[in-house]
Design a protein around this nucleic acid. Structure first.
Lengths: 226, 226
DNA sequence: CGCCTAATTGATAGGTATCAACGCTTGTGG
DNA sequence: CCACAAGCGTTGATACCTATCAATTAGGCG
């Protein structure tokens, strides 16, 4: 059905960060630590205890869930500014992997413990948790769209809202994730994603110099597509 | 595309609870109050300030978002035990309507304010927020399923987990929501929902005496369908 | 250089949205 | 009390969309 194993995953598993190792440089308790993140590295695994909370400062993360059937669903992407690692019942139900190099503040505690321990963090923790709820719900709306091209359009809009660079009335954005990631994010086939991008390009809505760079000259056109 | 207006909504708007009125019996501040909820009543509206938090004690709620295009997405259903009314940025982006009669404890505060004001509630509030994240993510997995019948199967499983009654090794559950609600929950057409139920029935996986009551004699069969 | 993967495009079969019609229940008014 | 309207759920027929299989190109890496 869907794609079982991705290059990034295997690359990371065989790379300098062994798959099941603790995040290096993270103390078992105490003060938060800033960590560098390398593309392909996994921050936490499906099944791990949710023992760390990450304040992402740079880079893009991908959170995925793999079903017993082998199907993969991308639960979400994380961008700088996000707080990552919320989990009900103290157990991660997803993998979280870096798509690009990055940097994060790592707290050795789950959200609730951290809120108890550091009251000054509470406002930001609550805001982040609410944002997480809101983003998951927005993604539901994205997935609920009936047609595949509407989903891809909504994804483009989402990317722009989260990471778009505005300049001279036009907006461009990097697309660090693969077409497979986008496909598993939207619940459509990778070929459909590719075709939808082509359609959007030929319709004059978007421009793409290469598959991972997108520009919109007339953003109003996209707004109409909502 | 999708269904613009539902009977319950219009019924509620013309019913005893006027559409834009405050929740009756709720003080503007102070102690929580228990409120009865009538089927069709709306607890909050898209665009409202997120000024109340509801501890649902009985009944089923439906949270929906309506797009400018008129399409409706069911963001989620709420069951007894849920805490309802989390919203990022203090503004509700969804409508929340009672599907059945019910009962709730109403707090006149948003989650963060309530956490500040009532520290003894903090553990439950955090747990509820984490649950909300987890459920939205589970729903993403449901929507990501490729085939419509797989989505309906996943929905049945979801219903059973949330509200199933186990007895003598078999499980049954009420389905209080309409086929339209299920369709807008799963992002498929209402006819497809109906056909999928029929298929599941004919395949011997489920039994349905009427459209709103479901029984599974051999739950193991459903587990295999994951 | 040769292998592997990503991304794209093509062809086709199958699934699902859509339009349509019907039975059923509920509520309303004559 | 019965006729009627309205909405829900279901089923049928059909056209369109998309998943799937296949092939091609381009780029990265050992």
């Amino acid at each position: 059905m869907t794609h079982h194993i991705r290059v990034l995953d295997t690359a990371s598993a065989s790379g300098p960060q062994s798959a099941r190792s603790r995040i290096p440089g993270v103390p078992q308790a105490g003060k938060p630590v800033e960590r560098l993140i390398r593309a392909g590295q996994r921050l936490f695994h499906q099944g791990d205890a949710a023992s760390h909370l990450f304040e992402l400062r740079a880079g893009i993360l991908r959170q995925t869930r793999t079903l017993e059937s082998g199907e993969r669903q991308v639960i979400g992407f994380h961008f700088p500014g996000d707080i990552v690692g919320f989990a009900p019942d103290g157990i991660h139900r997803d993998d979280c992997t870096a798509i690009t190099d990055g940097r994060a503040i790592v707290h050795h505690a789950d959200a609730r413990t951290l809120a108890d321990r550091s009251p000054e963090l509470q406002p930001r923790l609550w805001a982040a948790a609410m944002q997480e709820i809101g983003r998951a719900q927005d993604q539901l709306v994205m997935l609920g769209r009936r047609s595949a091209s509407a989903k891809v359009e909504a994804f483009v809009q989402y990317l722009i809202e989260r990471a778009g660079n505005w300049r001279d009335g036009q907006v461009s954005v990097d697309i660090p994730m693969s077409r497979y990631d986008i496909a598993d994010f939207l619940g459509v086939a990778v070929e459909t994603v590719s075709r939808s991008f082509t359609d959007l390009r030929q319709a004059g809505v978007i421009e793409m110099t290469d598959p991972h760079r997108l520009t919109i000259r007339h953003p109003a056109a996209l707004a109409n597509l909502r």
